[in-house]
């Protein structure tokens, strides 16, 4: 028998509508309101052990305290599953369901599920932090919503792995993962191509990106002859013992090294740890990745004001966009605080 806790708002608890939205958090034993429909759908498989109720306004007036109260309550009762809602297209109620589910999953490790209209505001906010099933936009769809909530919720409570969102009938959580299929790649590719040739509808298995965010060009350097220029590379050039343990692929770290050290290039010498290109030419002469000799010569000739004392390195292969953007931002802020005017980046 699966033991379930259920979160609802004041309306579904029968306290009242908008005029009672300030009803305080309370815990009741057993099923209340839509919880009875959930119990019907559960049959002998499970029961609702308690119902957590909170008014829509009072939840958001002090969300932190209300979430603490939920955590405290469920920490004692230790249910196998939390069901919140369904909240359909409701704004405040949906956000409360999302917040409660996310906190309970992350802090207590109890599986959680809520039901929302796919365009409800809470979907984008909490989709990656709790399981959601799609519902209609109003309580008129309660019966169907309860069935899918219970079916998917019971799988979670029994510790079963998630399946693809469409197989589970869930709202996608925003991540992709491999799944085993029995339809061969060659067959899918040929079917897709023939559909495209016939002019029939077809569904790409990977959607193309939204256009990348265009970054407005930075203002140009006004006077090169007084500018300090820094060198940055994603080519993985580091001292041979790789003291900062920058990853050879899928990097999450960057480091900077004094250019005097690179000029000396012995004890330690510099090598590429980048796992995405053949580094023999760069290992033989690091200037081929970080053109320090050329930049120093141009500084000596007075073409630029000076070379920044450090060069910056990370590895750009298999590096995720998230980490790439973070590292770029960190490097940029360091360069600005060091008074660098412009940068030459080398990329493999």
């Amino acid at each position: 028998m699966v033991r379930i806790a259920h979160y609802i708002n004041q309306f579904f608890a029968g306290i009242g509508g908008e005029e009672k939205a300030d009803a305080p958090f309370e815990v009741r034993d057993g099923a209340v309101g839509p919880g009875r429909a959930i119990e019907m759908a559960l049959g002998a498989e499970g029961e609702i052990i308690q119902t957590l109720v909170c008014g829509d306004n009072s939840f958001h007036a002090d969300a932190e305290a209300n979430i603490e109260a939920v955590i405290a309550s469920l920490g004692r009762s230790k249910p196998d599953l939390l069901i919140a809602g369904p909240a359909f297209n409701a704004g405040r109620y949906g956000l409360a369901c999302g917040a409660v589910c996310a906190a309970v999953s992350e802090r207590l490790g109890i599986p959680t599920i809520t039901g929302l209209f796919p365009e409800a505001p809470a979907v984008d906010v909490y989709r990656s932090r709790t399981v959601m099933v799609p519902t209609g936009d109003s309580a008129a769809g309660m019966k169907g919503a309860v069935e899918v909530l219970v079916r998917t919720g019971m799988r979670l409570a029994q510790g079963e792995q998630l399946r693809p969102a469409d197989v589970d009938g869930r709202i996608p959580m925003g991540f992709r993962r491999s799944w085993v299929t029995d339809i061969p790649v060659a067959h899918r590719a040929t079917e897709m191509l023939l559909a495209k040739l016939r002019g029939d509808a077809f569904a790409s298995e990977v959607a193309l990106p939204e256009g990348a965010e265009a970054i407005p060009p930075a203002a140009a350097v006004a006077e090169l002859s007084s500018a300090t220029i820094a060198l940055v590379t994603e080519g993985g050039l580091v001292p041979e013992d790789n003291p900062d343990r920058i990853e050879s692929s899928s990097a999450t770290k960057w480091a900077r090294y004094p250019i005097s050290m690179l000029e000396r290039n012995e004890n330690p010498s510099f090598k590429s740890i980048h796992a995405g290109y053949d580094s023999q030419w760069v290992d033989a002469d690091p200037d081929r990745m970080v053109p320090l000799d050329a930049l120093k010569a141009l500084a000596a000739e007075g073409v630029i004001g000076g070379v920044h004392d450090y060069f910056y390195a990370t590895t750009g292969t298999g590096t995720t966009v998230t980490h790439g953007e973070r590292m770029g931002d960190e490097i940029a802020k360091q360069l600005i605080s060091d008074g660098v005017h412009a940068v030459i980046v080398t990329s493999t």
């Binding site: 990348a212 930075a218 990329s347």
Partner: peptide
């Protein structure tokens, strides 16, 4: 991200089309 922070950055790369997709602004084939 360096340009986004207001510092002009030139990118030397053999992969200019990749650089364009990645959002670099001052790209040189090298």
């Amino acid at each position: 991200m360096i340009e986004k922070n207001g510092v002009p950055a030139a990118l030397l790369t053999a992969m200019t089309s990749m650089a364009m997709v990645a959002g670099a602004n001052r790209i040189l084939s090298s």
